[in-house]
């Protein structure tokens, strides 16, 4: 049985991370199996959705001064640095490669289950329709789409989104990016901050971190699909350094960053 092959990588720049994820998609096709990469960012960085306007980022004062990278995937902008980021790449022929919602739900439902076992009330948002104007909101965590993972705490009437994901659907593979918020970013102003797991749950005695959740989360993702989780024990960045180094400059180019 082909398992879900996983790498846990060291923090890297936005361009290196995007180049690595592009390669991850190609490798998923080559290996004909789903691959997942868990990673961080070497400095607080804004990643834009594939078609967000660069001008909108530059006009958003709350994120001024942060490096910006454009993802190949869709969705809204994410402020990285106090989150755990994942990229999963799946061949289009795989059961996760058809209906886009299937892959979102595979990762989000698994985390709901892991959180519930820790006594946290988590659920998937039902979506709120186009009238809510979510696509006009710049930041991913200000948007609510069907399947976004939200948690509710005892001292808040509001749901808080803590995991959002987006996809790039290529000819032979699907690349899905996701961000699990650990803490509200201190690199941005108040209007660009969103509470993460630590902010929401530490006062209630929750002593874990987003990083602690990764292993049970991916185990659950794999098990729900009848797959075995296989950690490579290696760094995807290190083992594919020449290809990633060669591809990274494209993600720094004006042609890519300023494409819209």
């Amino acid at each position: 049985m082909n398992g879900l092959l996983a790498w846990r990588d060291e923090a890297a720049s936005g361009a290196v991370n995007m180049a690595a994820d592009e390669l991850l998609a190609a490798e998923a096709v080559r290996h004909d199996r789903p691959l997942v990469r868990i990673y961080g960012w070497q400095e607080p960085t804004v990643s834009l959705g594939g078609f967000q306007r660069l001008g909108d980022a530059q006009a958003f004062p709350g994120i001024a001064g942060l490096p910006i990278v454009r993802r190949p995937s869709g969705g809204g902008a994410i402020i990285h640095g106090s989150d755990v980021t994942y990229a999963v790449a799946v061949p289009r022929s795989h059961a996760w490669g058809g209906d886009p919602q299937v892959l979102y739900d595979a990762f989000h439902e698994a985390l709901v289950e892991v959180l519930r076992k820790q006594g946290i009330t988590a659920s998937l948002h039902p979506g709120r329709g186009r009238d809510a104007g979510d696509e006009d909101r710049f930041l991913c965590f200000d948007r609510r789409a069907r399947g976004d993972l939200v948690v509710r705490t005892a001292d808040s009437a509001d749901d808080h989104k803590i995991l959002g994901s987006a996809q790039r659907r290529l000819q032979a593979a699907v690349l899905q990016h996701g961000s699990l918020l650990e803490q509200s970013s201190r690199a941005v102003t108040e209007d660009a901050r969103h509470p993460g797991l630590h902010d929401l749950l530490a006062s209630a005695g929750w002593g874990s971190t987003a990083n602690d959740l990764v292993d049970p989360w991916l185990l659950r993702v794999a098990a729900a699909a009848g797959l075995r989780l296989e950690w490579t024990g290696e760094s995807f960045l290190a083992t594919h350094r020449p290809e990633i180094t060669a591809a990274a400059p494209r993600f720094l180019s004006q042609a890519w960053l300023g494409r819209r």
Partner: peptide, 10 residues
């Protein structure tokens, strides 16, 4: 390319 909610497709 076309973007639907959260997904960009070629």
């Amino acid at each position: 390319e076309i973007e639907s909610v959260k997904a960009v497709s070629d």
